[in-house]
């Protein structure tokens, strides 16, 4: 418990540092978005327009410290300013839904890929030289080594365009209203998510599987596994409680990192499948020079990495008594 408390303190400090940097870095850069836009218009813009633009962007007058305090206050109220590319929608309203879509799709598929890969890795090591180990593992590793976007496009082309099994873009049928209580809407969401979901799973599974298999093989040669077998325990108990419980520990760090990148890291999948998640939003923000949106996306990504790390710490404490 003390360990978790220490970690939590660390993450809070880190989050605060990230929030602070998020404020200062743009302000330390030469020029600001308003000046940039102003320059693009090559003097055809009234200087008074610059003032109103600044106001639009949420620039606050006054000393830096006062600006900083305003920024913090806004942040805690969920006020990230107004989007420029979708003016005048508040940034929070753009980020909210896209974050939810990303966490649902990418988060779910990352966790699923980890679970499936790990379980297959356990069996590959347990029946070393068996079917999973000799056939499935090499295939999964090769698929995992292909460029991500390539797999995504192949999936999109075959299942979306050639066979038309699944809809090729967006998170749900756009003719529908978002209504989570409506079964038709839910099935539309599932249909839209299957292609990106499978793409992520088939590309990620090989890595988890290989990692877990190799950890397992190391653990299986440990005396405590031999002793567990000699004690007369069932194979199931030896495999799960004695071998896998120990073999999974090194995988957790990698899993936490991939969870942290869920929010920001699935850019390619979201682009290929035109999925309205964070990656897609970030791309739009960059293309539209939407600084408030960008800033908010970066902040959310940073906080997500910290949160995922904390989740990993909790998992560690639960699974490894030595970490308590």
């Amino acid at each position: 418990m003390r360990f978790l408390f220490r970690r939590l303190t660390f993450y809070i400090v880190a989050a605060f540092a990230a929030i602070t940097l998020n404020f200062f870095i743009p302000r330390m850069m030469v020029g600001d978005p308003v000046q940039l836009m102003f320059a693009q218009f090559q003097g055809r813009l009234d200087p008074r327009a610059m003032e109103s633009l600044k106001e639009t962007f949420g620039f606050v007058q006054g000393p830096l410290l006062q600006q900083y305090i305003t920024y913090l206050t806004n942040l805690f109220q969920g006020n990230f300013g107004l989007s420029v590319s979708s003016f005048p929608v508040p940034v929070i309203e753009l980020i909210g839904p896209s974050l939810a879509w990303t966490v649902r799709l990418i988060g779910f598929s990352t966790i699923l890929a980890f679970i499936i890969g790990t379980i297959l890795g356990v069996f590959a090591a347990w029946r070393r030289g068996g079917g999973i180990d000799n056939i499935f593992l090499p295939i999964a590793s090769v698929v995992g080594a292909f460029p991500f976007f390539w797999i995504a496009m192949v999936v999109l082309y075959l299942f979306g365009l050639v066979w038309k099994w699944f809809p090729i873009g967006h998170a749900y049928d756009v003719s529908m209203q978002v209504d989570w209580g409506n079964p038709t809407f839910l099935s539309s969401v599932v249909q839209h998510s299957l292609m990106p979901l499978c793409t992520i799973i088939i590309t990620a599974i090989g890595g988890w599987m290989l990692g877990m298999r190799n950890n397992m093989i190391g653990v299986l040669s440990q005396d405590y596994v031999t002793m567990a077998q000699a004690k007369g325990l069932s194979d199931r108990r030896v495999m799960l409680v004695y071998a896998a419980r120990n073999a999974i520990l090194p995988s957790l760090t990698g899993f936490a990192m991939s969870l942290g990148f869920v929010v920001g890291g699935a850019l390619v999948v979201e682009l290929v499948f035109a999925y309205p998640g964070m990656g897609y939003t970030l791309l739009r923000a960059v293309q539209g020079r939407d600084y408030p949106l960008m800033q908010a996306v970066f902040l959310v990504i940073t906080l997500a990495v910290l949160a995922a790390n904390f989740a990993a710490d909790i998992m560690y404490v639960l699974l490894d008594p030595r970490a308590r």
Binding site: D223, Y224, G232, R237, P321
Partner: peptide
């Protein structure tokens, strides 16, 4: 059998009691 290195002969993620209990219950 008693193994050479006690550190390696005990499962690090199970309590000592649990490792005796599972032998008995098996």
């Amino acid at each position: 059998i008693v193994f050479q290195s006690a550190m390696n002969a005990l499962n690090p993620v199970l309590s000592v009691g649990a490792q005796i209990i599972d032998a008995i219950q098996a």
